[in-house]
């Protein structure tokens, strides 16, 4: 019980627009335990980033949390006001964004960006902060860290910058890191290094990670659990091995059939027909039914069941019926 770091219960995010109120995140529940990695996957627009942003309290208006709860280390954080929530960010939740080229302030030396973050959250002196900044850079594998703290972001390559970003996210020792596609913008050759680095550092500290990605291979290698999102809802949630090898939601099954990972055995890659509907034109019933190979009348009439954190794995009336 006590080692649950993040617990999200029935989280709903709403965006009021001219076409009506959209729900990019709809009754989503998930949990991450201390030191564990939850992979979050889903097509573009499934609501992955929205979920991550909701957790760190940085939804861009008009998007806002309209229901549900977010608990961090046993404390509820979605109801916090601006100032206490600001103190949680950086201190208890670190964030890594997609593009390291734009995540760092181009006009400040990276050492200054590290020390300002530590001085904000930790009760240490400026010289101690500088010492820790050097140590942090060394830990993420920046050679010559003692000199490089005076360097500006443009003096580093993309991979090196993402290391700096990781150092920044971890420098106040948060218990959770939300990494939103941390390697998508990087060269393929450095992607694996960055993921391995993030995983190692978090394992050493017992930091939990919410790892948002499109890369099933990364999920298979790094995550403990995986959450599959579809049109703002949780489609399937469970231990990586179960979900990847024996998916029970027809969407996950289609997803697995369409990634090279599952096709190892010489099977052909199968694309799921159609595309995820836009939030403005969600069909009645289960959002996936127009693309679902096993859709029945019930799926067209009733929304799919909502998946609680502890419940079964798939949010489908007929979960497991199609077979992988």
């Amino acid at each position: 019980m006590t080692d649950t770091v993040l617990k999200v219960v029935n989280l709903t995010v709403k965006i009021p627009t001219r076409q009506g109120v959209l729900r990019p995140v709809d009754k989503l529940s998930l949990e991450i335990a201390k030191g564990k990695i939850l992979g979050v996957v889903g097509e573009s627009g499934a609501g992955k980033s929205m979920t991550g942003n909701a957790v760190i309290g940085l939804l861009d208006p008009p998007a806002h949390i309209s229901g549900g709860e977010i608990w961090l280390n046993g404390k509820r954080i979605d109801t916090l006001t601006r100032e206490p929530m600001r103190a949680v960010r950086g201190k208890q939740i670190g964030m890594v964004f997609q593009d390291p080229l734009t995540s760092l302030n181009p006009l400040l030396p990276i050492g200054d960006q590290l020390t300002e973050t530590m001085l904000e959250h930790l009760d240490i002196s400026a010289s101690e902060a500088e010492k820790r900044a050097i140590a942090a850079l060394e830990e993420v594998g920046i050679p010559g860290a003692a000199e490089r703290i005076k360097s500006y972001p443009h003096e580093f390559s993309g991979g090196m910058r993402q290391r700096v970003v990781i150092a920044l996210a971890l420098c106040a020792e948060p218990s959770l890191v939300v990494a939103d596609e941390p390697t998508t913008a990087l060269d393929v050759s450095v992607q694996a290094q960055i993921i391995a680095l993030l995983k190692r550092l978090c394992a050493e500290r017992g930091t939990a990670i919410m790892l948002i990605t499109h890369d099933m291979g990364v999920i298979a290698e790094t995550a403990d659990d995986v959450a599959v999102m579809y049109a703002g809802r949780m489609a399937e949630l469970g231990p990586v091995r179960d979900v990847l090898t024996r998916p029970t939601h027809p969407y996950t099954q289609g997803l697995m059939a369409s990634t090279p990972l599952a096709a190892k055995g010489g099977k052909r890659l199968n694309q799921i027909p159609g595309a995820m509907p836009r939030l403005t034109e969600l069909p009645a019933g289960c959002a996936f039914h127009p693309r679902c190979p096993i859709a029945k009348d019930k799926c067209r009439a009733d929304p799919a069941p909502t998946l609680g954190a502890g419940d079964g794995r798939a949010a489908c009336w007929f979960a497991g019926e199609a077979g992988p």
Binding site: R86, R89, G90, F97, L104, E120
Partner: peptide, 17 residues
Amino acid sequence: RQDYIRFARARGLRDRS
């Protein structure tokens, strides 16, 4: 609107900073 501002907020820096 830039990413580094978003990241600065995500690091929990104060509005003034």
